[in-house]
Design a protein around this nucleic acid. Structure first.
Length: 425
RNA sequence: GGAGAAAUGCCGGAGCGGUCGAACGGGGCGGUCUCGAAAACCGUUGUCCGCCUUACGGUGGACCGGGGGUUCGAAUCCCCCUUUCUCCGCCA
């Protein structure tokens, strides 16, 4: 969330920039600033009374010590009045504080000035395109048919075990998952990321810290008996490692990578978009997360983009990188690049990675700060994350693009992990 | 799952209901001494929210696992929760 001083100092600019996200913040911000004034006025009064209360209480202690019971009794009368007044004021303060907290989480992150305006993905800005488009025969199959014929992914079996959207990987299909995970983790650690294996369930505090709660509650699986949430992405536990942490500047940047399964309810999705691996409830993903100083975070974002691009290049998949327009940008992001690979048999671009700079928006929720050399006051750090990479659509694209009469060609970089250069029937 | 003990600042560790934001030790930072270092000695040492100040800073309030309560006054008493440790049970 945004900080109050920032909103106070940049009221007009914030409202104006948020129109890029097609968000009208004017009313929210006015209510917020109003509540802020009330809260502060209340606090000044409360603090004054508390100061007096502390003083009188000390006096009472002295008076009792000196045996001046009468004076002590009189002083007591004064404190009970004070107590009443403090109680009233602080409940007003609490009320204003609650309102502020409630309003703050309703205001999205301010988009970076390079973010183009727009309503939908059609308005996203193409940054660059790469890789070679495969030439497939007319009878080329979409990946869900390939998966069936080669018996490497069983969607129906997943329905039996759990439900729709929980595919079962078998044989070379399972091996391919493991190969991709290992390959991504190896490449990420080579690039300076530290490998993390986090819990797959988190508590509500963590869900709040990265912005899944309170509003996206319905997108997560909730374990009610223990009030845990199944993680929708490794971003949640890996970023929350730094919740309520004050780092020293020399510790930055912090670069972590983690493989985890991801669980998403995807309520409201249907139709051909969810066919096969295009959209599932449980999938594997390797995530990269960075914590950076504010002045370096956009450099870090570019670095992450370049790194992810190199992974896709090595897999020899045709891809494009787009900068999301305001309307497509997530609530918490200031700037996001999406990576899409082409699945030739479906003739579709599939999103395989989303790389974002959240600036201090997540950090403010997390209370993630860092201390500059020689400075007393800690400042909010910037957080970034991206998929490097999400597996299902990579697999979909690989299967479709690499199909030949003899079998599925394994990309060269994966051969050591797969133990073969071809997936056959 | 059952029984007991505990939770204090960067770490260790005191703390009778009032003068405790917290003794003492260690660490860190600054300084004296030194050619330099060590040792010794002196000083300093958190976070949050306000207010005043261009700033340096000053000042009020809050914070002793979290949340309630008792009291004029709570780190200290009471209740609930969480976590850790020990013992028993169960177990990959």
């Amino acid at each position: 969330m945004l900080t109050i001083p920032f909103i106070r100092d940049n009221r007009v600019k914030v409202i104006q920039q948020l129109t890029i996200k097609n968000f009208d913040a004017a009313a929210l911000i006015d209510r917020l600033l109003e509540a802020d004034i009330i809260r502060r006025e209340n606090q000044v009064r409360t603090n004054e009374l508390q100061a007096e209360m502390n003083l009188v209480s000390k006096e009472i202690g002295q008076l009792i010590k000196n045996g001046e019971q009468e004076k002590a009794t009189m002083a007591r009368q004064r404190t009970s009045d004070l107590k009443e007044a403090i109680k009233e004021l602080s409940s007003g303060m609490q009320e204003a504080g609650d309102l502020i907290a409630d309003l703050l989480v309703q205001i999205p992150n301010v988009p970076h000035e390079l973010v183009p305006p727009g309503k939908s993905e059609a308005d996203n800005q193409l940054i660059r395109q790469g890789g070679e488009m495969p030439k497939l025969p007319a009878d080329a199959m979409p990946h869900w048919e390939i998966a069936k014929i080669y018996d490497i992914i069983d969607f129906d079996l997943g329905v039996k075990l759990t439900g729709a959207g929980f595919p079962v990987y078998k044989g070379a299909g399972a091996r391919l998952q493991r190969a991709l995970i290992s390959y991504f983790l190896d490449r990420n650690t080579q690039a300076g990321y530290t490998e993390i294996l986090p819990p797959l369930m988190v508590n509500a505090d963590s869900g709040f810290g990265t912005g899944q709660l309170p509003d996206k509650e319905g997108q997560m699986y909730h374990v009610q008996s223990d009030d845990f949430y199944l993680i929708p992405t490794a971003e949640v536990p890996v970023t929350n490692i730094y919740r309520d942490v004050i780092l020293e500047e020399p510790q930055l940047p912090i670069k972590n990578t983690a493989y985890t399964p991801c669980f998403r309810r995807e309520a409201g999705s249907y139709g051909k978009d969810v066919r096969g691996l295009n959209r599932v409830h449980q999938f594997d993903k390797v995530e990269i997360v960075q914590i950076q100083a504010p002045e370096k975070s956009y450099g870090a974002l570019e670095e992450m983009v370049t790194h992810i691009e190199s992974l896709i290049n090595e897999l020899k998949l045709p891809y494009r990188i787009v900068r999301l327009c305001g309307g497509d940008l997530s609530f918490t992001s200031a700037m996001t690049y999406d990576f899409e690979v082409f699945a030739a048999a479906q003739s579709k671009w599939l999103e395989v990675s989303s790389v974002s700079n959240f600036e201090s928006y997540q950090a403010n929720r997390l209370k993630l700060r860092y201390k500059k050399e020689g400075e007393k006051k800690p400042m909010l750090a910037h957080t970034l994350n991206g998929s490097a990479l999400a597996l299902p659509r990579i697999v979909a694209s690989l299967l479709e693009n690499n199909q030949t009469e003899k079998g599925i060609m394994v990309p060269e970089v994966l051969i050591p992990y797969m133990g073969t250069d071809m997936i056959t029937k």
